[in-house]
Computed example of a mutant assay.
Amino acid sequence: MLKVLYLLNHAGKAGTERYVYSLIERLHNKKIKAYFAYNEEGPLVDRLRELGVEIYRIEMRNPYDLKAVREVNSLCRKLGIDLIHTQYLRENYISMLSRLLNPKVKVMYTNHFIMRNNLPLRITNRLITPLEANIIAVCNKGKDMMISNGVNGKKIHVIFNGVDPDLWGEPIKSTLREEFGIDDDTFVMLCVSRFAHDKGHGFLVNSIARLKEMTDRKFMLVLANDGPLLEQVKKQVKDMNLEDKIIFTGFRRDVKNLFFGSDVYINSSEHEALSFAIIEALAAGLPVIAADMAGNGDIINSETNCGLLVKYNDPDSMAEAILKMMNDRELQESLKKNALKTVRERFNLDIMVDRTYNLYLKSCNQKI
Results as ranks from 00 to 15, higher is better:
Met1Lys: 10
Gly12Ser: 14
Gly12Met: 08
Lys13Glu: 12
Arg18Thr: 12
Ile24Tyr: 06
Lys30Cys: 03
Lys33Trp: 01
Phe36His: 06
Glu40Leu: 14
Glu40Trp: 07
Val53Thr: 04
Glu54Gly: 08
Ile55Tyr: 03
Tyr56Asp: 04
Arg61Ser: 13
Leu66Ser: 10
Lys67Glu: 10
Ala68Ser: 13
Glu71Gln: 15
Asn73Leu: 04
Asn73Asp: 14
Cys76Asn: 13
Cys76Ala: 13
Arg77Ser: 09
Arg77Phe: 00
Ile84Cys: 07
Gln87Arg: 13
Leu89Asp: 06
Leu89Trp: 15
Arg90Ile: 12
Tyr93Trp: 13
Ser98Arg: 09
Ser98Gln: 13
Arg99Asp: 00
Pro103Gln: 10
Tyr109Ser: 11
Tyr109Val: 05
Thr110Leu: 02
Asn111His: 10
Asn111Asp: 10
Phe113Cys: 12
Leu119Glu: 14
Arg122Asp: 07
Ile128Asn: 06
Leu131Phe: 12
Ala137Arg: 12
Asn140Leu: 05
Asn140His: 14
Lys141His: 05
Gly142Asp: 11
Met145Gln: 14
Ile156Glu: 02
His157Met: 11
Phe160Asp: 06
Asn161Gln: 05
Val163Glu: 04
Asp164Val: 00
Gly169Cys: 02
Glu170Arg: 15
Ile172Glu: 10
Thr175Val: 09
Leu176Trp: 00
Glu179Pro: 04
Glu179Phe: 01
Gly181Arg: 13
Asp184Arg: 15
Leu190Gly: 06
Cys191Tyr: 08
Arg194Met: 09
Asp198Arg: 15
Leu204Asp: 07
Leu204Ala: 08
Val205Met: 03
Asn206Ala: 13
Ser207Gly: 14
Pro228Lys: 14
Glu231Gln: 12
Gln232Arg: 14
Lys238Gly: 04
Glu243Thr: 14
Glu243Arg: 13
Phe251Gly: 06
Gly261Glu: 09
Ser262Val: 01
Tyr265Lys: 00
Asn267His: 11
Glu270Lys: 15
Leu282His: 01
Gly285Ile: 10
Leu286Asp: 00
Met293His: 08
Leu308Ile: 15
Tyr312Gln: 08
Asn313Thr: 07
Pro315Asp: 01
Lys324Pro: 00
Met326Leu: 10
Lys337Thr: 10
Lys341Thr: 15
Val343Ala: 00
Glu345Leu: 10
Asn348Gln: 09
Met352Glu: 13
Val353Glu: 01
Tyr357Gln: 09
Tyr357Asn: 09
Leu361Ser: 02
Ser363Gln: 09
Cys364Asn: 08
Cys364Thr: 14
Lys367Phe: 11
